[in-house]
């Protein structure tokens, strides 16, 4: 590449600049025209899990249908709590925000109307290691919470412990090979349970 002439460097750079600007312009235009669709998709993918969690099947539904079902059946309360009033309800959903090894773990603690029985736990977002921490979102792990009470004799609360170490009735086995994920998720779940106890009961 001995053909570079110093006099041309300005011309070359401005050519590059024009190409960059045109490309970004084209992207910005496309982004603006599609942004509504993209936002609907993003929010529907968040709401899909909670709909499945309360027992509404979203099989074969597109983003608009999911959003419609969500707005139809859910009312938001204080502190980010969602109240579900559709078939099989009423149920209360408390947000879980936990710190995983790689990033936030987000989900919902869904409670029965009696205020102390777990209906289900769903995970809407996690970035944990596949095969290890990512098991936090697996149906087999989440099934361990279904139907459990969150309070036990002596004021004990339901607690997630290291994998294979659950002894007492208020303990639940964590994820094997993922101590940090288990600990973070356990703490997030615990604050969601505090909310459930504070605002609990049917409404």
């Amino acid at each position: 590449m001995t053909e570079i002439e110093s006099g041309n460097i300005l011309k070359s750079l401005s050519f590059l600049g024009v190409v960059v600007l045109l490309t970004m312009g084209a992207l910005a235009w496309t982004h603006t025209s599609w942004s509504k669709r993209i936002l609907t998709n993003e929010s529907a993918s968040r709401h899909k899990a909670i709909l499945e969690g309360v027992g509404v099947s979203t099989r074969g539904m597109d983003s608009n249908a999911i959003e419609y079902m969500f707005t139809k059946h859910f009312r938001s309360g204080s502190g980010g709590i969602l109240r579900y009033t559709g078939p099989g309800g009423p149920l209360s959903c408390y947000p879980i925000r936990a710190r995983g090894l790689w990033g936030p773990i987000e989900g919902w603690l869904i409670m029965e109307p009696d205020g102390h029985t777990i209906h289900s736990v769903v995970i809407t977002h996690q970035e944990e290691t596949p095969g290890l921490g990512a098991e936090v979102a697996s149906p087999s792990f989440l099934a361990r919470f279904r139907g459990r009470s969150i309070v036990y004799a002596g004021g004990r609360r339901l607690a997630v412990v290291k994998a294979g170490q659950a002894r007492a009735e208020y303990e639940i086995d964590g994820i094997s090979g993922a101590t940090l994920t288990t600990r973070g998720f356990g703490q997030g779940l615990d604050s969601a349970m505090s909310m459930a106890l504070k605002y609990g009961g049917s409404r």
């Binding site: 041309n8 070359s12 050519f15 190409v19 490309t23 084209a26 992207l27």
Partner: peptide, 17 residues
């Protein structure tokens, strides 16, 4: 039209776009 000295950059920008 692509100037030789920045052609790799131009190609990268087009591809990235």
């Amino acid at each position: 039209f692509i100037p030789r000295d920045v052609r790799l950059m131009v190609e990268m920008v087009i591809i990235a776009g």
